[in-house]
Computed example of a mutant assay.
Amino acid sequence: MARAYNFNAGPAALPEEVLLKAQKEFLDFEGSHMSVMELSHRSKEYSQVHDKANALLRELMEIPENYEILLLQGGASLQFSMVPLNLLDRNLGASYILTGSWSEKAVKEAKRIGPVEIAASTKASGYHAIPPLANIHWNKETSYVHLTSNNTIYGTQWQEYPQTGHIPLIADMSSDIMSKKIDVSRFGLIYAGAQKNLGPSGVTVVIIRKDLIKKDESLPTMLSYHTHASSGSLYNTPPTLAIYLLSLVLEWTKDKGGVSQIEKLNQQKAKLIYDAIDESNGFYTGHADRDSRSNMNITFTLPSSELTDKFLQEAADEGFIGLSGHRSVGGCRASIYNAVPHEHCLALAEFMKKFKNTNS
């Protein structure tokens, strides 16, 4: 069966090898005569899955021992609340950097908990760029500095992160986690919904420095990082199928050569499409400034809405899925997460060139 050219922004493409292995094990996991979905989360079989996911995350991201890995639910949207509930000191406030819609939503939730300052924003210019590091300013006693590492809607991505010293740097990495090597020790907390680079929707990875985990009896039990850290992310029934698929994606990443090799492949994939944009003599216009371009979400426009509609229809006829831009900005978007094959990006670049030559 031919696979679609899947450029959806999320839930997104999963590696075909992962899907085939999951299919093979679907009715009988490890000789249990049960599906992973049917296993008790307290069983020996499931414990091996849970432990493997944790171990591979720690290995592939080189997570130091003084960090806890939590496998939670609720997506990044719940983390917008959990982060300030657990870390925001109301006497100090927190600092947020605005680079798109998701950071705006994070700010909205944080303001429900305590005072928030905007350390930098590119909203006035239409979120075309990541702010220069020199333009980011936060209160020196702030509780933490929060950023969104990659912006799926606008197609921008941090190339270098601010140095925050003793102040914890918090990052929503939902759409570019494990797409490139990072120094985890630069961050106090990293969180990511799995449905872009790590697996299916349903599980959220939180990587938190252990000294930031505090027991606070005033917090609702399920909204406390301490609850989940002290129970190995097994306080309540975890999303077992999503964690199983997470473990398979991590296994696939390791087999591909790890994060450093994945990063090289992502750079090559992105270059194919950005070259099609840059060499089109203005037929395609990228949304993001060149020094802020994302290797995960490539956003661009065509000369008219009529041509955009024609492009999307002809692309769909050729098997390209998910190329419509977000409703808030329009245009087109190609999401080329880790699992999107190089050949699919090459096919899209060739289609873009052919469409331009026919319609310009």
Score class of each variant (00 low, 15 high):
G75Q: 11
E65K: 14
L78H: 11
E68W: 05
A94N: 02
G100I: 01
S95G: 14
I63A: 07
S81F: 13
G75I: 08
N91L: 12
T99C: 14
I69V: 15
T99K: 08
E65I: 06
M82S: 09
L85S: 03
L88P: 01
G75Y: 05
G93I: 00
F80N: 13
E65F: 11
V83S: 07
G75S: 13
E65L: 14
D89Y: 04
L60R: 01
Q73L: 12
I63L: 14
R58V: 09
E59N: 09
L57C: 03
E65H: 13
Y67G: 08
A55L: 15
D89I: 00
E65T: 10
L87D: 00
E59K: 11
P84T: 04
E65V: 07
S95H: 07
P84W: 02
F80K: 01
Y67T: 05
L85F: 09
P84Q: 05
S77Y: 07
P84I: 04
E62A: 11
I69M: 10
P64L: 06
Y96F: 14
L70G: 02
P64C: 06
M82Y: 05
N66G: 10
N91S: 14
L72E: 13
L72G: 00
L78C: 09
V83R: 01
E59C: 10
L57M: 08
V83L: 11
G93A: 08
G93Q: 00
Q73G: 12
Q73A: 12
E65D: 15
F80C: 13
G100P: 09
L60M: 07
E59Y: 03
S81H: 14
L71Y: 05
V83N: 00
M82V: 10
I63W: 11
Q73M: 15
